[in-house]
Amino acid sequence: METAFYVLAAVTVAGAVAAMALPRLVHCTLCLAVAFVGLAGHFLLLGAEFVSFAQVLVYVGAVAILVVFAMLLTRSADAPPAWVVSRPGLLGVGVAVLVFGCLAATVAGSGLAGREAPPAPEVTVKALGERLMAEYVVPLEVVGLLLTAALIGAVILALEDRAKGGT
């Protein structure tokens, strides 16, 4: 268990760093997919099977593909490698390191540090579905509404303004 965690953590962090640091956009997206798969592995280790598969389905199957499509449509895939180390850039990294330091200090300072996991609960898809249909039915409907709105909004945004005779 421990080994699996550290291997997966290394893969996830390496994928995330590469996704943010590589000069070529396509490489970034592919590394992002690796990071997402690593996270799905963590979810599987933690016993959240359904979330793990949903993570791969949504992030690798939809978000990464959408990013790829956006890259191809905006001709960014063949853009020259952009990696400019500038003053604001270094400042951004500094802020991020500061945030990580704060978060890590909080985690270390909280009483949670040595907490051990209770025995693994049995998470069946049936139990999840019953929760979603009973206690969480309003959030579920709201998410459905949100997704529909996002679908329509995305289509309208990306639709060319033909009325104005757009390019």
Binding site: E49, F53, V56, V60, G61, A62
Partner: peptide, 25 residues
């Protein structure tokens, strides 16, 4: 025998799309 086996099938199937893109690009 995953409890969410069907979801697993579709989730891993989604990986092939990225492979097609990798090959093409």
């Amino acid at each position: 025998d995953f409890d969410a086996g069907l979801l697993f099938f579709f989730a891993v199937g989604a990986g092939t799309e990225l492979a097609v893109f990798m090959a093409g690009w």
